[in-house]
């Protein structure tokens, strides 16, 4: 096991971990931003928008990630004719990243929505009864309280995303799990490689969950 790590650590850390973190960060960063928009879209009083966003979110959450990756990486480029196909559609890494972003946006949007809706309605009513606008109420009262509901679930989602990037190894885009395949195929010894990869994933997710716990503690004052 140690032999494997000492032999391949450069590849594992500098390529595998780097690409895993890279994909995760892209998915989380854009997923959270798009997810926030989706959340407000779904809560919109304009029914067609709310319905459309709801449909997209439910479909994304209700189908397997691996299937979505297949559709993104193989399916979509297939239906776009070669003459008009932009380059990025042929780039596995980009397509995997896009699918990860959409997938995590769907989950994050539900986390944000339920976090906002979990804030007691009385808080909004009190703010509105004082003559504050809907916008001020949202930014001063509801969102600061919603963040506390959202953070723990968002932390879990972050961890899930890190682990789900392993599915991207199906398309050999160079993240940690792909490296596992590469190592296994040169030394024919699967088991130690399992353990090494597992430890690396665990270190990533465990340190992330510690960071999240720290942030949560910082925000707790009531």
């Amino acid at each position: 096991m140690w032999k494997i790590f000492s032999q391949y650590w450069k590849i594992l850390i500098f390529e595998g971990v780097k690409n895993t973190i890279y994909l995760s960060l892209i998915a989380l960063f854009f997923g959270t931003i798009i997810g926030a928009f989706l959340a407000f879209g779904r809560m919109s009083k304009f029914k067609p928008l709310s319905w459309a966003v709801g449909a997209v979110v439910e479909v994304v959450r209700g189908t397997p990630m691996l299937l979505q990756l297949y559709i993104g990486v193989f399916g979509i480029p297939m239906v776009v004719p070669k003459e008009v196909r932009p380059d990025f559609l042929n780039d596995y890494f980009v397509m995997v990243a896009i699918v990860l972003v959409i997938n995590s946006a769907a989950y994050v949007s539900e986390i944000i929505r339920s976090g906002i809706q979990a804030v007691d309605k009385g808080q909004t009513e009190a703010a509105r009864s004082l003559g504050l606008s809907g916008f001020t109420t949202m930014t001063q009262i509801v969102l600061p309280q919603a963040v506390k509901n959202i953070l723990p679930a968002l932390g879990n989602e972050f961890i899930t995303v890190i682990k789900e990037t392993s599915l991207a190894s199906t398309f050999a885009v160079g993240e940690l799990m792909t490296k596992y395949d590469e190592i296994k195929s040169v030394n024919y010894n699967a088991f130690p490689a399992y353990i090494v990869i597992g430890i690396i994933y665990f270190v990533l997710t465990y340190s992330l969950s510690k960071i999240m716990a720290f942030v949560e503690r910082k925000m707790k004052h009531d």
């Binding site: 009385g122 808080q123 009513e125 009190a126 003559g131 504050l132 001063q140 009262i141 600061p144 009531d222």
Partner: peptide, 20 residues
């Protein structure tokens, strides 16, 4: 309505002080 509400205070059963 926001202008009108500024002159119309309200006190709730559940107090509804802003927790944050």
């Amino acid at each position: 309505i926001n202008l009108a509400r500024r002159k119309m205070g309200m006190v709730f059963q559940q107090f509804n002080l802003f927790n944050n």
